[in-house]
């Protein structure tokens, strides 16, 4: 990981010699550069908080939407299809604008930028989570349900103790993908003024006129964040697998 970062950063320092690049703008050695860097990184906590809150909510909604999709009742399955098709058809950016500017007009309540972002991201992602859960649950052998039935487990207990633990292990890579996706999509919440990474970069570009360097830093910020998340998901996968082996 460290070596990978070194390789990625290498061209940046090399290009520092060229007259076309002006790394001074984010040079931690100078006072102004350090201030600028701190300003850029000030968005990190919001990006992380926004993404993680949204993914937790979207996983919860996704599961609640997936379960009726597996029912033998046609109405419940119809509800699942309607939700998934409808939500999946709305572009995230449009949903963000709708939730922030549109929803208060119906509800009469104004909503903070942060929660508008969380709601829009969570809703948008929940349709995908629902499909992932449905596929994961459907991949579990019918015999598991029959065994649970034969020891008198209720539907809730069967899901909680037998089916979901196995399904979640199988869909963990897909859930990890969604988290990465969420981290990237959180950049869109900058359009309604959320002070996350992308917004910070945009604001700095306006004052410093160095889009190339500042957006390069922005790319690196997302890259590092997502590499860390990927590593964490892989670690979790490994841990869940070793559970059963020794």
């Amino acid at each position: 990981m460290k070596r990978l970062l070194a390789i990625l950063l290498c061209p940046l320092f090399l290009t520092g010699c060229s007259a076309d690049w002006g790394w001074y703008v984010v040079n931690p050695g100078t006072k102004q550069g350090l201030t600028n860097l701190k300003f850029l990184l000030g968005g990190l906590q919001y990006t992380v908080l926004l993404s993680f809150t949204a993914i937790l909510i979207s996983i919860t909604i996704g599961l609640l939407i997936a379960l009726p999709g597996l029912s033998s009742n046609g109405w419940l399955r119809g509800f699942n299809r309607l939700y998934v098709e409808l939500i999946r058809a709305i572009p995230i950016l449009v949903l963000i604008l709708w939730v922030y500017y549109g929803m208060p007009q119906i509800s009469g309540l104004s909503i903070s930028v942060f929660w508008a972002g969380v709601i829009a991201l969570a809703l948008s992602d929940s349709a995908f989570e629902a499909e992932i859960f449905r596929a994961g649950i459907q991949s579990i052998d019918k015999g598991q349900y029959e065994a649970a039935h034969s020891i008198s487990l209720s539907y809730g207990d069967t899901m909680r103790f037998v089916i979901l633990p196995q399904a979640i292990k199988r869909i963990l890579p897909a859930l990890g993908n969604q988290l990465v996706y969420m981290l990237k999509m959180s950049s869109l919440v900058s359009v309604i003024g959320m002070q996350e990474l992308t917004r910070k970069a945009n604001e700095l570009v306006v004052t410093e006129y160095r889009p190339l360097e500042i957006y390069t830093i922005l790319v690196l910020e997302y890259l590092v964040l997502i590499l860390l998340v990927s590593a964490a998901v892989r670690w979790l996968e490994r841990r869940m697998n070793t559970d059963e082996r020794h």
């Binding site: 015999g143 598991q144 029959e146 065994a147 034969s150 037998v162 196995q166 059963e244």
Partner: peptide, 12 residues
Amino acid sequence: GMVFQQFNLFPH
């Protein structure tokens, strides 16, 4: 009680 051909133990 029921015992199945494929055991159907909970693997996790």
